[in-house]
């Protein structure tokens, strides 16, 4: 059966959803991801949905479930790249995913995860590269 690939990047897992998922694929992703968190001891999960043209209540619930399960397994989840039309529709549908962290891009999501884990004393200092991104204009 078709599977959505999960990439390991240091202590984070990255999932980029690029296909129009049917429900079984979404459920498989939920199972795979929680298994990988335990297996790798990952502390953060990034789910990039910038290529998704639609999120219905089923996929929305899957995302919320992943975040909740990950939290129990001691990992933080950030959903990145949700398109405006998708976000508007999701709100009208009645789903606002409380408790799910979000970021505009994968890069920002990564910074957010580092900051959250750093604040919790889980990670060492954010890397120099991150600080460069974090700093505003020099004026």
């Amino acid at each position: 059966m078709e599977r959505i690939p999960i990439l390991k990047m240091g202590r984070f897992l990255l999932v980029t959803i690029q296909v129009d998922m049917h429900d079984r694929l979404a459920l498989a992703l939920q199972d795979d991801l929680t298994a990988r968190i335990t297996e790798t001891g990952a502390r953060g999960v990034l789910i990039d949905i910038s290529a998704l043209e639609m999120v219905d209540s089923f996929i929305g619930r899957m995302i919320a479930n992943i975040a909740a399960m990950a939290r129990i397994l001691d990992a933080q989840t950030v959903v990145t790249g949700m398109q405006p039309a998708v976000a508007i529709t999701l709100v009208e549908l009645g789903l606002d995913l409380p408790g799910v962290r979000t970021a505009l891009t994968v890069e920002r999501g990564m910074l957010l995860l580092r900051a959250v884990l750093h604040a919790a004393g889980e990670l060492d200092q954010p890397s120099a590269a991150d600080e460069g991104l974090d700093a505003g204009p020099a004026d």
């Binding site: 429900d23 639609m54 999120v55 219905d56 209540s57 089923f58 039309a85 508007i88 529709t89 009208e92």
Partner: peptide, 17 residues
Amino acid sequence: NLVDQTRIVTAASELAR
């Protein structure tokens, strides 16, 4: 428009399910 397309497709997904 894109937002309306997304609304309709999402509704279709809910109803088909």
